[in-house]
Design a protein around this nucleic acid. Structure first.
Lengths: 217, 217
DNA sequence: GCGTGTGAAATGCTTCACAGCG
DNA sequence: CGCTGTGAAGCATTTCACACGC
């Protein structure tokens, strides 16, 4: 009944593309345009937009403005979302300006770190607190989503406190599988696994090419 | 015939877990142990290891040492893999020490940046080159995999040059879908999409909970 | 003709369930 | 017994293919 997870990710991608097209002054877009840009098929785009409940026309394709509106209505929280960043190390500091510039309605309103030199300071325009303040700040700022970029050893402990405080979603950069109850959404970004995977795929493609010489591309 | 992509990712995760267990002195591990740790089912673990061609025994489960060996034999290039990092901004600089410490056989041997202040310097123990040198360095260092952490606007241009130079895999942090021929593997890490997705899922779980009160957890 | 909307088929992945073995 | 190995069933997601409309 509810939208497949894969589709949700693609809808977010469509929005990025369609914003780009709007900036370029385009008014309509065809399913095969979007398909080509995200590396999928036109049928898949059409089905995704069908699930979104957004209809196109055969003459002009999908209306850029309407689609943008519909996607935002679907994806975004009406009042935006307050987010907290845990871990202000190299990665954490890189994430702050990245998310700030790309996502206005996902606001990083607080950051946390164990390092007492960081706590109390304002880093990338965002107040950094000590870990002992997390419960108070999360409640006060109505934070519902957390980004985790802390050392692996402390991750599960922090997550348990987050869950107890009522967090609803976690974007996890820590290379550890978190244990959470079903009422909390976790999205893992496991950079180590991704690198190993692409290195592996690179090698196996190479082997394939040697295996069958003469095929195209 | 060839191993499913999902399974490849999980195998990388298994290795991480099994290394941990070895460090703790354990000799055997059961499928349900691994399943619990990665949040999957025991049947899935068994099937993955079956695909790997690694057999366990009913008394002791899977042998830690043998499994570690088998996974490394499966995943790793015998001589290791030389990798280049493109973009030494906030994110790029965060990635260097991260990969260095976690993956000895995936070596970042060169980095590249357009900023002339960075080119020529050694950053995180790794020589940074100007973009104009990429073809020469990639060939010289036998780089087969690239990590992309550059601005969106220049990504496709760099990728085209990489492909022409013979790169085989790309770990892409840039929020853009890259166009590459089928002989090149791309793994996208789209942090923006991931954040939007988890925020969305967080909200929809919340709605669900309100919908059906009284169910457990 | 070229594009959308969509039931139906196909594919790929996960889980079930049970035989077999130490 | 409890755990592995695995054919078969079950799901989820993608793709096909064709009716319909501009």
């Amino acid at each position: 009944m509810s939208t497949p997870e894969r589709t949700i990710g693609r809808i977010s991608q469509y929005r990025r593309l369609v914003r780009e097209m709007k900036k370029q002054g385009r008014q309509g877009v065809y399913s095969h345009d979007l398909a080509e840009m995200i590396g999928g098929t036109a049928a898949q785009v059409r089905r995704d937009l069908m699930l979104l409940g957004f209809a196109g026309s055969s003459r002009t394709g999908y209306a850029v403005d309407g689609l943008l509106l519909r996607i935002s209505e679907f994806l975004d929280a009406p009042q935006g979302e307050n987010i907290a960043l845990f871990g202000v190390g190299n990665l954490g500091r890189a994430l702050m300006p990245f998310f700030r510039s790309h996502h206005q309605n996902l606001r990083i309103v607080a950051s946390f770190d164990t390092d007492p030199l960081k706590a109390g300071r304002v880093i990338h325009g965002c107040r950094c607190y000590g870990m002992e303040e997390m419960e108070a700040v999360i409640v006060r700022e109505r934070v519902k989503v957390a980004i985790l970029a802390i050392p692996a050893g402390s991750a599960q402990g922090v997550v348990d406190r987050l869950v107890a405080t009522g967090i609803r979603g976690i974007l996890n950069f820590v290379p550890v599988s978190l244990q959470v109850p079903a009422k909390v959404a976790v999205e893992n970004i496991d950079m180590g696994v991704a690198l190993e995977k692409v290195a592996f795929l690179a090698r196996s493609i190479e082997k394939d090419l040697i295996g069958r010489r003469g095929s195209k591309t």
